[in-house]
Deep mutational scan, measured.
Amino acid sequence: MAEAPPRRLGLGPPPGDAPRAELVALTAVQSEQGEAGGGGSPRRLGLLGSPLPPGAPLPGPGSGSGSACGQRSSAAHKRYRRLQNWVYNVLERPRGWAFVYHVFIFLLVFSCLVLSVLSTIQEHQELANECLLILEFVMIVVFGLEYIVRVWSAGCCCRYRGWQGRFRFARKPFCVIDFIVFVASVAVIAAGTQGNIFATSALRSMRFLQILRMVRMDRRGGTWKLLGSVVYAHSKELITAWYIGFLVLIFASFLVYLAEKDANSDFSSYADSLWWGTITLTTIGYGDKTPHTWLGRVLAAGFALLGISFFALPAGILGSGFALKVQEQHRQKHFEKRRMPAANLIQAAWRLYSTDMSRAYLTATWYYYDSILPSFRELALLFEHVQRARNGGLRPLEVRRAPVPDGAPSRYPPVATCHRPGSTSFCPGESSRMGIKDRIRMGSSQRRTGPSKQHLAPPTMPTSPSSEQVGEATSPTKVQKSWSFNDRTRFRASLRLKPRTSAEDAPSEEVA
């Protein structure tokens, strides 16, 4: 009796068929016929556990003709996506030579605008209408194809895939403007070719909807975003200037109206006075309405000098805001240009540092100066060695804690006790272990408590650290204090090793 083939788990290929790579489910599931010992083939499952149809090819690079078809379809799909992405970037994010197409579109729109203006002049109306009709045909074809291509290429973005995504893309403001202008152009052409009475009025009214094509030149909205950011950044200043200017306008108009309503027919109503105030304070000055009385002229002159300053403030605020924003954008561009080279330089330096163990090129690091100058660790070890030599091999803490019996001779020589300023008595072995921070803190506390006492003391002649007598400086308080830590004499004296002298005989010792 033939044995059933062993159940295979995992992703390994079956024996005897090495080139074939078959994806098997996580659990080997066989058909009921196979479990019962029949000759049925096992049921194939996909990666998600769903059964595959009987005629479906197995996924994998070596699955025969199905694999070749899959490779061809995958390559075609990649080319399709690449083309779609390229078209989308050309239309929505132009760079380099892609601006040539947008310059061509701008020339078409500008020519249409010029011809629309010439069509309103009686001398050039006939020729402009003929040229404009031909140009409209060209623009309908160009913009119609462009609109379709834009909607198709938007599928390269995830949020615009599918018919719902394309509809979302078509609802964008600039796409809506394109659609309105396209419909208006078709209506103008249809009305112009019919030759009816309505054609002339339709051409004159709907052609100027094509002015909206100038708005579509900035599809990404960079200028509007820049203007919005400047207004938002200086909103408080703008609101303040406009508010005060509006108050000056209504008060000036009302007072001039009261002064001129009886003697001047131009100011017969408050609305006429508001019109005069707006034209005057905005420095336009049509001259259609002028005050005639001396009181009205004085009020107009005073409020004009006051109001023009507030009406001119928004222009200066926006101008300075634009300058600052442009400078910030230039700085951001320079930062973006330098970020990648800086990151590459840091990575290269780290690779060199991690692979080169000698690091002989590091001549400006802490390790280099640590090898030249005595390190703080060596100074600490030197302090501890000196203290243990004086205390008979014991550390200062051990000397303080060691009990001394009554009447027993002390094995240590008597030492002079010292007192730290602002604290109780402490171990004499710690007097010379006072660090730089303690010395600086002690000097600052003395300056806070009594700076007036220092200038009363007789001035001391500054001497070099080499000429100081070591026996005289029994305490860190003898170090000359200065008002600034930048004094080199104080810094050098604080680094010197001060020996400890006994109370009975204080021989001067120098520590090399």
Rank of each mutant, 00 (worst) to 15 (best):
A2T: 08
A2P: 05
R8S: 03
L9I: 10
G10C: 07
D17A: 10
P19A: 12
R20G: 10
A21E: 06
A21V: 12
E22A: 04
E22V: 08
E22K: 13
A25G: 12
L26R: 06
T27S: 05
V29L: 07
E32G: 03
G34C: 05
E35V: 05
A36T: 10
A36V: 05
G37R: 10
G38R: 09
G38V: 10
G39V: 01
G40S: 07
P42S: 08
R43G: 06
R43C: 07
R44P: 12
G46S: 10
G46C: 04
G49D: 01
S50R: 10
P51T: 14
P51L: 10
P51H: 09
L52P: 11
L52Q: 07
P53Q: 03
L58P: 10
P59S: 10
G62S: 02
G64V: 09
G64C: 13
S65A: 06
S67F: 12
A68D: 08
C69W: 13
R72G: 11
H77N: 09
K78N: 13
R79P: 11
Y80S: 15
Y80C: 14
R81P: 07
L83P: 02
N85H: 02
N89Y: 08
N89K: 10
N89D: 07
V90E: 04
W97R: 03
F99I: 13
H102N: 10
L115V: 08
V117G: 15
S119F: 11
T120P: 13
Q122E: 15
E123G: 01
H124P: 02
Q125K: 07
L127P: 07
L127F: 05
C131G: 15
L133H: 00
I134T: 08
L135F: 15
L135M: 15
F137Y: 02
F137I: 09
I140S: 15
F143L: 10
L145S: 03
Y147C: 03
I148N: 03
V149I: 08
C157S: 08
R159G: 15
Q164L: 08
R166C: 05
R171I: 12
K172E: 00
K172M: 07
P173T: 00
C175R: 00
V176A: 08
I177L: 11
D178A: 00
D178E: 00
F179C: 06
V181L: 15
F182C: 10
A184G: 14
V188A: 04
V188D: 00
I189M: 12
A190V: 15
A191V: 15
G192D: 00
T193P: 00
Q194E: 03
F198L: 05
A202E: 15
L203V: 12
R204P: 14
M206L: 04
R216S: 15
G222A: 15
T223S: 00
T223A: 00
K225T: 00
Y232D: 00
A233E: 05
T240N: 00
G245V: 01
V248M: 02
L249V: 00
F251L: 07
F251C: 02
L255V: 05
A263V: 04
A263D: 13
S265A: 02
S265P: 11
D266G: 11
D272E: 09
T278S: 05
H292D: 09
W294L: 11
W294S: 11
V298A: 08
V298F: 02
I308L: 05
F310I: 04
I317F: 03
K325Q: 07
V326L: 15
E328Q: 08
Q329E: 07
H330Y: 11
F335I: 11
R339M: 02
R339T: 12
R339K: 10
P341A: 15
A343T: 08
N344S: 12
